[in-house]
């Protein structure tokens, strides 16, 4: 590409001419890199501090000014933190709930998104407009009735058919997994992805006599695998990080998710910072690792969805 622009008489060193033109002088580039490095470092200081703290001994934590790196790397803090609070249980609960939400979203969300995008059924516009209206509903405008629905869920947790007398879905896996299982945003994203595919495929498939469900499952869905990954990661991340809902519907220790577990641990024991930071590291590491390995999908998803 660069050679096409080569002018007669230029020295070989000047061959990639357009690049040289756009390139800043090295001093400018160095300055830019220094500033960006400092900024990036500032952004990750809290993470580094979290890890450093999680590896210090209580005696070292009591020092002021604090040491930057642990004098002795106390890896045992992690196993001791698990004794102080069942973080492994919280971790497992968070994982199960996030996986549950992701599976429900992928199955129900993609099915609805496909129908809205590709099947011209009667009333489709109304359904779609309904979902669009639901996109804008903030958490706090539905949280009180959602809680009441869970509490008065008929025939569960000792409730009678009118939802009276018991605790309903409170302190159950149902409450943790079902209400947050699907969002209008996911349906919307799926619809957009299915809309971007060519129409000829469905026409050909219908002529071949495939039923609509098979067209969805075998023809179109395999084509949007990157979109599935994007929505899956966003869903998983959101439910892993969710705090308010599990806080409201669970009080039993064995149902706690890791975010709530951290908050409760901090309230019960506000001095064991090394354990708390070990727990916090456990709560953040999965998302950081997931993000580092699947950056492309995360970035695509966040740019599409806009809102966290």
């Amino acid at each position: 590409m660069t050679t096409t622009r080569m002018q007669p008489g230029t020295t070989p060193a000047a061959v990639p001419k357009p690049r040289i033109k756009r390139r800043r002088p090295w001093k400018g580039r160095l300055l830019l890199n220094v500033i960006l490095s400092l900024g990036a470092f500032t952004m990750i200081i809290p993470f580094l501090w979290m890890i450093a703290t999680s590896l210090k001994s209580p005696a070292e934590l009591a020092q002021f000014p604090p040491t930057l790196l642990p004098q002795v790397w106390q890896w045992s803090n992690y196993s001791e933190a698990l004794q102080a609070a069942p973080f492994h249980l919280y971790f497992r609960n968070s994982f199960l709930i996030s996986a549950g939400h992701t599976i429900i979203t992928l199955v129900l969300g993609s099915m609805a998104g496909y129908a809205l995008a590709r099947i011209p059924f009667r009333g489709r516009e109304w359904v779609f407009m309904g979902f669009v209206a639901m996109l804008m509903i903030p958490t706090y405008t539905k949280i009180v009735p959602q809680f009441l629905l869970v509490k008065f869920m008929p025939l569960f947790g000792g409730n009678d058919i009118f939802g009276q007398g018991g605790t309903g879905w409170l302190n159950t896996w149902w409450a943790l997994i079902i209400p947050g299982g699907l969002s209008a945003t996911a349906i919307f994203l799926f619809r957009q992805f299915y809309l971007s595919l060519p129409r000829e495929l469905e026409e050909a498939a219908r002529l071949d006599g495939l039923n609509e469900f098979r067209i969805y499952a075998q023809i179109y869905t395999p084509l949007i695998k990157p979109a599935l990954a994007t929505v899956a990661l966003l869903t998983f991340q959101e439910s892993w990080n969710n705090f308010l809902w599990p806080l409201l519907v669970t009080t039993r220790d064995d149902l706690r998710v890791i975010q709530v577990g951290l908050a409760v641990f901090q309230q019960l024991d506000s001095t064991s910072w090394h354990y708390l930071m070990a727990g916090t590291t456990l709560a953040t590491v999965p998302m950081v690792v997931l993000f580092l390995f699947c950056q492309k999908y995360f970035i695509q998803g966040f740019t599409h969805a806009g809102i966290k």
Binding site: M43, P46, W240, T284, I299
Partner: peptide, 18 residues
């Protein structure tokens, strides 16, 4: 990645560090 990291991690965990 560095600038985006706080966005993917849980607000509760991050608040704990702060």
């Amino acid at each position: 990645t560095a600038f985006f990291l706080p966005q993917v991690t849980a607000t509760v965990a991050i608040a704990m560090v702060w």
